[in-house]
Write a protein that binds this DNA or RNA. Structure first.
Lengths: 217, 217
DNA sequence: GAATGTGAAGGTTTTCACAGCA
DNA sequence: TGCTGTGAAAACCTTCACATTC
């Protein structure tokens, strides 16, 4: 294990689920948990849980299961959420405003410390203790504030320009909420959050009586 | 084609991407588009595009490509977004408030027509022309309003109770924003929107210098 | 000539099933 | 005995490559 084998995206996403389940188990004072129980809680299979974890090491004890607290720590390390990340958010509209107060982000170590917008009425205003900066100063302020991750929540029409600026500021990780594909260099990680997509999947399933399998997150 | 073969989740998600790209192409007055161009715009491969579409029919013309307008209409039909869906939203907090005004939903035919909350200060208040109802009347009002899809944006701790009520009201499609897995009967479709997951993927990629492949949405 | 539609090949992910260990 | 860790098998998904059609 721990070879240079490529880990699949699905495995990483499931690690997030295991982490979440382990947080609940820890709060409920469980010491150990079996792959079977972990699978049940996230609607997966026990074999899947064991295989996923096996890519990163041997965390369990045969006959007993996995130590809750320790496995949670291990997964946090693997996912890189055993630290805090300095995050900036661009676009204080609809979605953006909601994300500033979204507790789940800070709980996982993603601290939003900078806000940007292009609207004069918003610039200078205070959201959860953070003053909104003018987007014209984006590049300079991103580096000054040592930002590592940028969340983009601007209209689709301007998203590419904003992302170009972000890339030029040297940022290597972007989370995009605009419903548009964005070009970035190979060394920049970008992920897309497309909230209509799951609704469309539901709609497809209803119209086609599509059989259900797993419930992917 | 059109046999009872199971269509993969990835294919459906990519249909959403094609639909989005076709909307742009239509606005820009393109008459036809090749699988190559469609692939370029959504960072996929031409073969993938053709294979995906082939599951549902033969929409293209050899030597020419696909008719933009017609293909868009066809995909809308497949996804079930060639109609409107009556949607209710439960939980007018942080995320919930943002979703009420989220244009992308209405653009795809998902019309939010009912709002619910348990907070007395919110009940009776008006959001985008919709008065917030008391969650105690959830079941009754969901059927009275002929709701077909419910979006859940309540805290994780109460999400299962809410979902049980929704299921009892006969709803067959649920979009869940609470970061928790929820149990529903086999005939109810539920999808999860987990916004931390993509941030965690970014964090994983950065910590592990993970090579990038496709950009999934 | 250009680009679709599609079997077949290739690659990846999941599941199986069991050896091995507490 | 119970449950992990893991090769091997099965299932699934993507890419190739080319016959086909406009």
């Amino acid at each position: 294990m721990l070879g240079k084998k490529r880990i699949s995206e699905s495995t990483i996403h499931r690690l997030s689920l295991y982490y979440r389940a382990l947080s609940v188990l820890e709060k409920d004072n469980y010491d150990t948990v079996s792959s079977k129980e972990l699978a049940r809680r996230e609607k997966l299979t026990p074999a899947q849980v064991r295989k996923d974890l096996s890519f990163f090491g041997s965390f369990g004890t045969r006959g007993l299961g996995y130590p809750v607290k320790e496995l949670k720590t291990q997964i946090a390390g693997i996912l890189g959420i055993d630290r805090t990340w300095r995050v900036a958010l661009v676009g204080i509209g609809n979605i953006g405003s909601a994300l500033v107060s979204y507790k789940e982000f800070s709980r996982q170590g993603f601290q939003i410390v900078k806000l940007f917008d292009n609207d004069q009425r918003k610039i200078g205003s205070n959201h959860k203790g953070i003053v909104v900066s003018d987007i014209r100063n984006l590049q300079q302020e991103l580096s000054d504030a040592k930002i590592e991750v940028v969340i983009v929540a601007v209209p689709a029409t301007v998203a590419q320009y904003i992302v170009d600026d972000i890339v030029n500021a040297g940022i290597k990780a972007i989370l995009n909420f605009a419903p548009v594909n964005l070009k970035v260099p190979d060394d920049v990680y970008i992920r897309h959050e497309n909230m209509s997509m799951e609704l469309e999947y539901l709609s497809f399933a209803m119209v086609n009586n599509h059989a259900q399998k797993r419930v992917r997150a």
